[in-house]
């Protein structure tokens, strides 16, 4: 990808997709200098915590669903008495049977970044609950890095550019069938160079290329996204360790660094929203967003003056 602000392509990037060494190289060349400016000496520690991301990167020309491939991979590894590498990333050029939450269809033709990250669940529940937020922050940062400076997060982790959705995530728990090890399968779908959408998504979906006005180097973007995931998932472990030591969180006023990052990228707070478990099918209600709770829940003020913390479900903007 060519860019005027030094966001150049990785040297020696493979034609078939980003490899682990490409992600590492991007982190060394770009991520560490960038983070040092804001996070100083803690930068290497956070990146070490997140270094499992992209430990193995598996690339496919086509899959039905990346999540299914991840489950099959875990099952096969366990049956072969082998360990699954946490951070394994499965990427496909296109998916033929992808879907979002509530079995919603997700259009995944060639040109987008479609895949799944296998995270061996080693986080405490208090940290694990931030996985969704961390994934959204990572994607929003990567999209901005690639030129869409106005990309914003809509709670929980929808990435919008100009109010249209450019990326979505689906996180599912999975237990290995033999050893019952717990995994989080972090599914990601990011519209990069795919510019056509089904009729029902024409007004609500967009792609990075459409927004920046030129094709984007998909391999480069993959490395950037995985580097941002390295940082943001690393934050979960870093802050968990701080808290367990009794040091509290590291953000301003003792706030969790991930929540601080989420707030900087989101335009949700202060918005008028409709909310529900499934805003397209369930009974919904309207409210005004007043803030984000320490546990990542969305604080809403209802029209009768009462407040509600949304821990699950989804929102759509009304204003």
């Amino acid at each position: 990808m060519q860019s005027s602000n030094g966001r150049g392509p990785l040297s020696g990037m493979k034609a078939t997709g980003a490899a682990t060494e490409d992600v590492r190289q991007y982190i060394l060349d770009h991520e560490i200098p960038l983070r040092r400016r804001t996070d100083g000496d803690r930068t290497p520690t956070i990146l070490q915590y997140g270094a499992f991301v992209g430990s193995v990167i598996e690339h496919h020309a086509a899959l039905v669903r990346a999540m299914d491939r991840a489950r099959a991979h875990i099952t096969a590894m366990e049956e072969g008495n082998r360990s699954v590498a946490s951070g394994t990333v499965i990427i496909a050029d296109s998916l033929s049977g992808s879907r979002g939450r509530f079995a919603r269809s997700w259009f995944a033709p060639a040109g987008g970044l479609w895949g799944c990250l296998i995270h061996a669940n080693t986080l405490l529940p208090e940290s694990r609950r931030f996985l969704s937020l961390a994934t959204g922050v990572a994607c929003c940062e990567a999209i901005r890095q690639a030129g869409a400076d106005d990309a914003r997060l809509r709670w929980v982790n929808d990435v919008l550019i100009g109010g249209k959705k450019a990326a979505g995530f689906l996180i599912q728990g999975f237990s290995g069938p033999r050893h019952l090890d717990a995994y989080d399968l972090i599914g990601f779908g990011i519209n990069i160079n795919n510019r056509s959408f089904p009729d029902e998504l024409q007004n609500s979906a967009t792609s990075l290329a459409e927004e920046v006005g030129h094709p984007v180097d998909l391999h480069y973007f993959t490395a950037v996204f995985l580097a941002k995931l390295t940082w943001n998932l690393g934050l979960l472990y870093f802050e968990e360790a701080n808290d367990l030591r009794g040091d509290g969180f590291s953000g301003r006023n003792g706030e969790h660094l991930l929540l601080e990052g989420w707030k900087e990228l989101s335009d949700t707070i202060g918005r008028r929203v409709v909310f529900g478990q499934n805003v397209f099918e369930d009974q919904t209600a309207e409210a005004t967003v007043t803030g984000l709770d320490d546990d990542g829940g969305l604080r809403l003020r209802l029209d009768d003056g009462s407040s509600l913390a949304l821990q699950s479900g989804e929102i759509r903007y009304r204003d």
Binding site: R128, R129, V156, Q172, S312
Partner: peptide, 28 residues
């Protein structure tokens, strides 16, 4: 379902019928 992370929960008790349901959809 928590923060857009859906985890299947597998039953690990004795076989039987679901006699009482103590949760309501949408309530934590």
């Amino acid at each position: 379902s928590l923060m857009k992370r859906d985890t299947p929960i597998y039953y690990d008790g004795e076989p039987g019928v679901i006699y009482s349901v103590y949760f309501r959809p949408g309530i934590s």
